[in-house]
Every structure is written in C-alpha cells, then in structure tokens.
Nucleic acid binder design. Structure first.
Length: 256
DNA sequence: ATGGTAGGATTCCTA
C-alpha cells in the first residue's frame, strides 16, 4: 500500500499537477491539506477521471483537507479538535482496517502569541481525539499531514539558526513528542534516518534553490503499521515545477 | 531585525 501526504496550497491552483502526480505515482491513498476550496466547488470529477475517490472538508480561502483513495473509505469523520475553532483541519476515514487522518496543524505564526498557544492546545486535543484519554483506539491509526513542526535538528536546514523560531521551538517539539508517546511512530523515519529530507521550502528569498527547507509534513502510524514500512521518500521534483506548491509530497510504502 | 512570494477574495490576510 502506497500512502502519501501533500499540502497543495490550493487544490484548484494545483489541480493539473495533482492529477498528473496521481497518475504517475499511483498511490492508494493521499491526504491533502490547504485545499482552500468549499465543498461545493471541490474538483471531484477531475480526480475521478484519474481514478480517485475523494472525501473532503473545506472552506473559503483558508485551510481545507481531503483524502483521495483508489478504494472507498468507510466511516468518514470531519472533526474539530479545539472547542470553538471551526477551521477545517481534520478529516478521517477507514481503509484496510486503519483509520487514516488528513491533518493540517495550525501554523502558530510566531512563538508566544495566542496563535502559538492555540497550536499547542490543538495538538494536545488531537491526541485525545486520535488515541483517547487512555491511548486506546479500537483501530490502528495513520496520521498524515502538515504538522507545521520539525521534530528533530536534522529536520531543519540550520538547527542553530532555527532554534526557537516557529516550527522549531521547544514547546512545539515537546507537543509532538507527547503525541508520539501516546502511541504513534514516525513511519517515514522507519525507512529514512538521514538528515536534510525536507518537505517544505518558503516561496521567498530563493529558499528552495538554497535548500533552506524544513521537514514539517509527516506520516505517523500506530506501531503495528510502522512494522510494515518498506520505503519512504519526499518527491522533491514536485517542488521544482512551475506553479508548484511550497510543499513536496511525502510518500510511504507499506507491505500491506 | 525586516521582508521576501504565493493564493485567494478584494486592498488585505495567511502562510
């Protein structure tokens, strides 16, 4: 089974790239973030032509998540981890006996702002939602998405320069560590231990050309699923193309 | 320290 996550930064702006990528890579399931489209305008027909079903939860201009799959998903849920926040950042469905989540974590904007603390709370509440207060979900879980956090020094272009900046602060990394300790494994890292495997580069300042990237897009799974990881890669070619997203797809191959 | 590029709905907001 090939699974992937891709923050497309507007699905309609990226539709040709996404469709061509699906046809070429043939993933079984793809989690998208920042679709930036209301459900009424979701381009389901174009994706269906490429052979993919879609479930989605979007809004105007911002946020928006979807899961594309070759096989239909069961028991689809649209959820809002943080009470009072209606950003469309989380959708899930069941396939192959696994609950797959497409998640768009809050950006946080800048350390020690209200948005930053809301990000930390959102991550904590996501853990409650995925794994329950006692870490018990009846199904194994796969959490794919734009986590907006680089967990380790090898996940940022310069850990000294980045230390304490948004995406690489101690509280953000601690929030991810706590989430993992509830029963999730970085499945990408099962196959790929080396530093510098970035998934996002800012559009500005020639960041991609200079490889000033971060690994903030992740595939985390229950331990029983992580045992089945056979390969993983960032499809960096998608970041070189005209009119590309600022994120590249992250792909994990499982022998299930 | 600041601002830089991109997308989307409209002269700014978010990332």
């Amino acid at each position: 089974m090939r699974i992937a996550t891709w923050n497309v930064n507007s699905l309609r702006a990226r539709l040709d790239l996404v469709r061509d990528w699906l046809v070429r890579l043939q993933p079984d399931l793809v989690c998208l973030q920042e679709t930036k489209v209301v459900d009424e305008l979701f381009p389901a027909a174009v994706l269906a032509e490429a052979g993919y079903r879609a479930v989605f939860a979007g809004e105007r201009t911002y946020n928006g998540v979807a899961i594309l799959s070759l096989e239909p998903l069961d028991d689809v849920r649209v959820e809002f981890p943080l009470a009072g926040n209606v950003d469309h950042r989380l959708i899930s469905g069941v396939s192959h006996g696994i609950r797959f989540y497409s998640a768009y974590f809050p950006n946080g904007r800048a350390p020690d702002t209200e948005h930053f603390f809301a990000k930390l709370r959102w991550i904590e509440k996501l853990g409650d939602l995925l794994l329950g207060p006692d870490g018990s979900d009846p199904l194994p879980v796969a959490l794919l998405g734009d986590f907006n956090v680089a967990p380790e020094p090898g996940d940022v272009f310069d850990p000294v320069q980045m230390e304490g900046r948004i995406h690489f602060t101690a509280p953000e990394r601690a929030a991810l560590t706590a989430l993992g300790e509830r029963g999730l494994v970085d499945a990408f890292r099962v196959a790929r231990a080396e530093p510098g495997l970035f998934s996002w580069w800012d559009y500005r300042q020639g960041a991609f050309r200079r490889n000033l990237g971060l690994r903030i897009d992740h595939v985390w799974t229950s331990p029983a699923i992580a045992e089945h990881v056979k390969a993983a890669f960032v499809d960096i070619d998608e970041r070189r193309k005209p009119s590309c997203s600022d994120h590249a797809p992250v792909v994990v191959d499982l022998d299930i």
